[in-house]
Design a protein around this nucleic acid. Structure first.
Lengths: 297, 297
DNA sequence: TAAAAATACTCCATAGGTATTTTAT
DNA sequence: ATAAAATACCTATGGAGTATTTTTA
């Protein structure tokens, strides 16, 4: 049984007339009669009672009509749905966000997706660490991740969302607060307030200090940026933070750029070769969210 | 899109290999490739990613596979269901029963249908009168009826379930109880106990008495046969009843045959020309119920 | 007898087969 | 180098068209 048979039968059953049904199907009457006959033979059951004056449905035909209509509608719906999935306009996308981005970027991205890609279903996981997401992307457990470069795997592609550098956060009255620009080596003997050891920013801070020739003396750890700034304000130590962490807060903390500041960018990451239209469309969707109006510091 | 495309795609998607899928479909590989390509062109979307070593599903293909499987299964189910409906093995049958038959025959018939035609759904209406059922059959509101002939319409066909005649029910000590056989005219001056005026049996009784040259003097009406026999037993009058009404009851009522007894048969009735297999199968089903072991009185 | 479906046949579009090439590992 | 899919080309099944007959109301 081919869908042709369903279409033809529905036409005849609705028109109750082979001639009119054939016209509606843009074909001649005899082949239509033949196809219906073929259908009935395949089913082993009469679907229509025909006289020269009337075409009527048998009980079997009545049943066939209803369900054939449904099947044709389902088939049509399937074709449409497959098209939207193929175009990347709908589907399920698993997205991971690194710590701070979870709260700063995710809401905007989810809102933008809801608005511009209503067929897209986002499966979001927040508070992930870069190495975890890297592995998840390679193994196909995530489609896209918002993480802090660098990534180790060559099977990951990136587009940068925020081009950022580390700045030094100092208490207002710190001896270095008067300097316009600092170098990492200026901080050799300073007490440090840091993100947790496993965080991406912390790893970058550790590595940068090692290159600058010293091991930072960590006196306090904080998970939240606001907490961290409070500790700096309280004079516990200095912190190395992404420049974007300078929130319009009430903190009296001084930010000073670093001459040899390492990059702590945020990037969208996906597995190399994952050119699924859904991923592509999602990446385009994210651009304006990441750079609201080109505000790179 | 034809079901062919669905079958072919499911085969390829399941085998993940055009060659093996083609073998499973008993065809060569190139036309299979062509049909899949045609399907993808019609949908405007790639369903498969092929290399020479791997065939993989795109997200669109993944979706298509699931729903195509469902559609094919639904189609298969439809074909099977249409076959059983066509064979008269399943479907809905509207059956009407006349008063007494509602309780005496209907339970057995419904039970037999449940046992032998599990696909049959009986839509039963009991306590109907012959003229109502006759009209309902002609107008297509009933498919089959168990009624008491005769019927007026020539558009109704009958098969007899119970060939029966009226007998006289008398109190044990009645003056006519000693006679072996009676005639209607013997009852001219007797008081009568009858079914309600609209019942089929009553109409037959009235007509028979008119032909015998008298109008029965009705002293009591009863809807239930058992009530009616109680009235006879109590000496209120005589009754004309189908012989089968002589139940193995505790009543001390004497039954006497009538020489000129009119027929009060029960028959299965259906609309002339309604040769739906369901009706035919149902009629066959009813035979052994009506004549448990050929007990025609 | 007239309208409509079924037959009888013809044709050609296309599904399917065969041979070969291309491609990716 | 090899396995597998794509391409090119051919064949033939059967879907669709034309002419005609059959049916029944």
């Amino acid at each position: 049984m081919e869908t042709r048979h369903l279409r033809y039968f529905v036409a005849v059953a609705e028109e109750r007339h082979f001639g009119r049904a054939a016209a509606r199907l843009h074909m001649a009457q005899p082949p239509l009669s033949q196809q219906i006959k073929q259908l009935e033979e395949q089913l082993g059951t009469a679907l229509l009672t025909r006289t020269t004056r009337r075409v009527d449905l048998t009980p079997a035909g009545e049943m066939f009509l209803g369900r054939a209509r449904n099947l044709l509608a389902e088939l049509e719906q399937l074709a449409q749905d497959v098209r939207t999935v193929g175009e990347g306009a709908s589907g399920v996308l698993r997205v991971g966000f690194t710590g701070t981005a979870t709260y700063r970027l995710m809401p905007g991205i989810v809102a933008a997706a809801r608005r511009d890609m209503p067929g897209l279903q986002l499966n979001v996981q927040g508070e992930m660490l870069t190495p975890e997401m890297e592995e998840a992307l390679v193994e196909g457990r995530l489609d896209v991740a918002v993480l802090r470069p660098p990534v180790r795997s060559t099977a990951i592609e990136l587009t940068f969302l925020e081009q950022d550098r580390l700045s030094v956060a100092l208490p207002e009255n710190h001896r270095l607060a008067g300097r316009e620009e600092l170098e990492l080596s200026d901080l050799t003997d300073e007490p440090f307030v840091c993100y947790p050891p496993t965080s991406a920013v912390n790893l970058i801070v550790q590595e940068a200090c090692r290159r600058a020739g010293f091991m930072p003396r960590v006196v306090q750890v904080a998970r939240e940026t606001s907490t961290l700034l409070t500790f700096v304000d309280a004079g516990l130590g200095v912190a190395l933070l992404p420049t974007t962490a300078r929130l319009p807060s009430s903190q009296r903390v001084t930010f000073r750029p670093l001459h040899d500041a390492p990059a702590v960018d945020l990037a969208l990451a996906w597995k190399t070769g994952n050119d699924a239209p859904l991923v592509h469309n999602f990446l385009k969707l994210c651009e304006p969210v990441a750079h609201p109006e080109g505000n790179t510091p």
